[in-house]
Amino acid sequence: MNAYRVSQDALRRFIEAVFINECLPPADAATVAALMAEADLQGSDGHGVIRLLPYLKRLRAGGINKHPKIRVVHERAAMAVVDGDNGMGHLVVTRAVDIAIEKARSAGVAWVGTRFSNHAGPASLYARRPLQHDMLGLYFAVGNANHLPPWGGTEALLSTNPIAAGIPAGDEPPVVLDMATTVAAYGKVKALAKRGEPMPTGWMVDRQGEPLLDPKRSNEGFLLPIGGYKGYGLALIVGLLSGTLGGAAMGRDVIDFNADHVSVTNTGQAILVIDLAAFGDPAVFKQAVDTLVRDIRGSERMPHVERIWLPGEQSFDKRRKHAQNGIPLAPALLDELDALAAETGVTPLARLAPT
């Protein structure tokens, strides 16, 4: 069976209706739904509508505060710490990025961290937000479940702890890097399990260090860090910056939100925003980025390599294709969403946007 395709707008409206049905304030439901649909639009299918049911489990169990009072608890000219009051992570991080953008206008640079946040979707969504203001963004987060042991160990004390960067360009697409500090993000493991596909060798190993290929057995092993011990070190630093520094959970304090729907996760994220105007004419910077992008893309290729890609180009291409042709949803996921529509009484996707 081929994947079902749905428009971004239909997906957004479906998600929004489900959240409103779960008593999220309409404005909050709209914000979260828009970001989740955008995640699927750019091909981040491990962080889009596939997360709707897990979010609902936490909302229904009281693990997420439906009416948070998100507030700044520490602040100076170029920094702030935002307490999310255990609200939806999308709301908390959006507030943090907005504060960082405003502070960067006057200070030139701003660092804003979060505590008592929750899972917020793909990191690149937030690193991209400063781009429209001629600013660049660097985003860091503590993952919402530990899947990575320290190098040589067997106790999972670290998570995928992602890094994202959004660098504006001129005529070229922006350079947008979004990467876990593990070889693959755990959301990709979930997406493969939903599609019934195996994991590639090198994503996970079992407790004896042997390759683990079945995503449905992922709880029997560990994700592998990028670059061996270097990736382990990077995951640790990202966690210290985005978690420990702002008073959020790290190490043994991290709650596995896949298994525990009640406990407060105290998730931490951080955004660093830099105003290009603080360093000179933004147009000059963006022209230089364009030149570098074209030099890299046009550089000599190895045999059998059709194209050299820049970070973010493939997501940019998926945004364009999915906007034209619809966002693909796996049949198993669509079945879950249809069942959810019947349970909650919201209009099913098939009626919002027929195939």
Score class of each variant (00 low, 15 high):
A3I: 00
Y4R: 07
R5A: 09
S7V: 05
Q8G: 09
R12K: 14
R13H: 13
V18K: 00
V18T: 06
C23N: 15
C23Y: 09
P25C: 00
A29Q: 02
A29Y: 01
A30D: 00
A34D: 11
M36S: 07
E38V: 03
A39I: 07
Q42E: 08
Q42D: 01
G43P: 05
S44M: 10
G46M: 06
R51E: 11
L56P: 02
R58Y: 06
R58I: 07
L59C: 01
G62M: 00
N65G: 02
N65L: 01
H67A: 06
A78Q: 10
M79D: 14
V81I: 15
V81R: 05
G84A: 08
G84S: 05
G87S: 05
H90W: 08
T94H: 10
R95I: 01
I101Q: 00
A107F: 02
A110Y: 09
R115W: 10
R115H: 09
A120P: 05
G121D: 11
S124A: 15
S124R: 15
S124P: 01
Y126D: 04
Y126G: 08
R128A: 14
P130V: 05
P130H: 04
L131V: 09
H133N: 06
M135D: 01
L138V: 14
Y139Q: 05
Y139H: 12
V142L: 02
A145P: 02
W151A: 12
G153V: 03
E155Q: 12
N161C: 11
N161Q: 11
P168T: 11
V176E: 01
V176A: 06
T182S: 15
V183S: 08
V189F: 14
A191I: 07
K194T: 12
P198L: 10
W203P: 03
V205L: 12
L213D: 09
F222P: 00
L224Q: 12
G228K: 09
Y229N: 12
A235I: 02
I237L: 13
G243R: 02
D253S: 12
D253K: 10
I255S: 03
I255P: 04
I255M: 07
A259G: 02
T267M: 14
T267E: 11
G268K: 01
A270I: 00
A278M: 06
A278H: 11
A283R: 15
V284S: 13
Q287W: 11
A288F: 03
L292P: 04
L292Y: 12
V293E: 03
V293A: 12
I296C: 13
I296S: 13
M302N: 09
I308C: 13
E313W: 11
D317K: 02
Q324S: 15
N325S: 13
E336V: 05
L337V: 06
L337S: 01
D338P: 06
A342F: 08
T344F: 01
T347I: 14
T347W: 03
P348V: 09
P348G: 02
L349Y: 04
A350D: 10
A350C: 11
A353N: 13
